[in-house]
Amino acid sequence: MPPLLKLDDVYAQYITRYGTVYAVNGVSLEIGEGEILGIVGESGCGKSTLARVMMMNVKPPLHLVRGRVLLQGVELNRLPRDRLKREVWGKQVSLVPQSVMNALNPTMRVRDIIRDFVKVHNPELDDDEVYSMARDRFEELGLDIRALDLYPFELSGGMRQRVAIAIATLLNPKLLIADEPTSALDVSTQKVVLKLLKRLWNEGIVKSIVFITHDIAVVRQIATRIAVMYAGKIVEVGPLEEVIFKPLHPYTELLISSILTPEPEVKKRGLVEIRGAPPDLRTPPRGCPFAERCPYATDRCRREEPRPVVIGSRLIYCHLRGGGAA
């Protein structure tokens, strides 16, 4: 079975007159049907850009300079924007917004936001049909249907996020991309939202989810597979448990050791252990991007870009794991 979404050697750059930001540099990734892929990385590593590329929501100054984006074999990168809007976004690939506080139009009631959204894709429905559809879905997901008559600012943060998720999945998209859906929420609300996502997935309302976060602790609660991103590149991809308990890439290792250790003082130390700052994406380094900060880095790491190495069900980009040999 072909993967649901496939990124094939994708390069995406922000090209402005002040310079170029190399945000995504040669990412290849497959998202199979029925999986929840967590994409983890520090802020500024290109995660959100990657999310955009996955939907092909690419508009100036962002450009897809190389590579293909295939949704069930269809090359999204060849479709014009209006066709993407009409046929793909919201319907096949949907997005849970990053900053949910402002992601809903403040001057529209929730039901009107829904109406506009649904009618784009199903112009044949009349308003009442849309409303009843929304009501049904809200009930199904255990959301208060009174929220439909309210304005976004009248909802609590958690409720707003859940409503956003409900809207995003209203048309049963195959793939749901959730970009930091919980980062603005407190822990208990985070749980509720994660539960909701899981439920959508369990009930098959969405087939697959891409869950983007900087927080490994969160991704651990939901993902089936995990991809670690660094400086616009994927450094390691693999099943959740494997990657977390037995990281193979030095960056993954450091990332996990810094976060998963329960004691706060260790955690603090862990953070210190990743010396330096991520590279400036305006001038990406040659060779392995992590070489500058990697405690095991060799001359080769600084010189040559590592190639992917398959180890079991995992894929690693590192010279130490033989990335140069392939």
């Binding site: 939907m55 976004w89 992601a103």
Partner: peptide
């Protein structure tokens, strides 16, 4: 953000 979001949800330009 809301405009960005509405855009990525497929809401057409005119709207």
């Amino acid at each position: 953000d809301y405009m960005e979001y509405a855009d990525s949800m497929g809401v057409p330009e005119s709207r």
